[in-house]
Simulated scan of single mutants.
Amino acid sequence: LLLLLMWIGLSRPLFIFNILLRNEQNQEEMILHFLLDLSSQCGVSFPCTPSGTSFELNSRASLHAIEDDSSMNIKSVWDDVRLHLRRFLVNRLQSPHETNTATLKQQMQFKTQCIQHLLFLYPESEVLTKYQNMQNKLVSELLQNCVLSSCGETNFDKVVHGYQSSIPTLCTMIKEDLCILSGTIDPSSALMFINETYLDTITEEITILLERLCELQFKENALHIIKTSKISKKQRGTVHALG
């Protein structure tokens, strides 16, 4: 079948894949693995261009493409196919059902595969940006949930305890992403990802919380001063009346 596709060209299979993805459910994994096999076994080089840019299909082998298919039509179809596959992969990464029953090793293998498949479809910068946004959201939600119980309070010790409870989960997330990305992208890029996704986000969340605590403490102090002042005036008025 792969040799047949090399003979008839890639445009028609891409159109067929696009129709399947639009009209049939649960076709994503089959099509994705088919494209990966086509690339690895037949030497077909699918363009990993940024979203919305032009490209030409290339191959180390000779592809007898259909002449009446313009490159613009093929580009549009390829963009549709890989966009659909990207949504499928991102949904899998975000789905708790995919990882809840798996061991940590299985989770990392699963996520590594998803990241590698995304890198097959899109440039590294786009994939990392998308994944970073996902992880940023998880980190922010984790930290915010850990201090929800102390919302509206200025008990600093309680807030610290809330953050301490998040440390094991954060360490696991950092370890997981470091292992996943170190085997997928350049180590320096992986370290930059960890720094921006976790350390910068943690710093930002703590800064926001401390500002909120300071503001609440200032308001409480101001209310206490006003209340004390009113009591003092009332007491002086009572003493003056008795005198």
Rank of each mutant, 00 (worst) to 15 (best):
Q144L: 09
F15A: 04
K75E: 15
T49G: 05
E56L: 10
E67G: 13
I208G: 00
E215C: 07
T129M: 07
G152D: 10
Q107Y: 06
L118K: 02
V159E: 01
Q113I: 03
L142T: 06
L2C: 03
P187H: 09
K175I: 01
F110R: 05
L63N: 03
D177I: 04
E29F: 00
H240R: 09
L178Q: 04
L138R: 11
L38M: 14
S149P: 00
E124W: 05
L210K: 08
C151K: 15
I115P: 01
H117P: 00
M30W: 13
R12V: 07
N26M: 07
S54Q: 11
A241N: 10
N145R: 15
L199Y: 13
V159W: 02
S140N: 09
T99C: 12
L63R: 03
R22C: 09
N155T: 08
E176R: 04
C171A: 06
K137Y: 09
T103W: 14
P13M: 07
E98K: 12
Q135R: 11
K175S: 13
S70I: 01
A65D: 08
M192V: 11
E67I: 07
E124Q: 15
N73Y: 05
L223D: 10
C42E: 11
T103N: 13
C146S: 15
N73V: 13
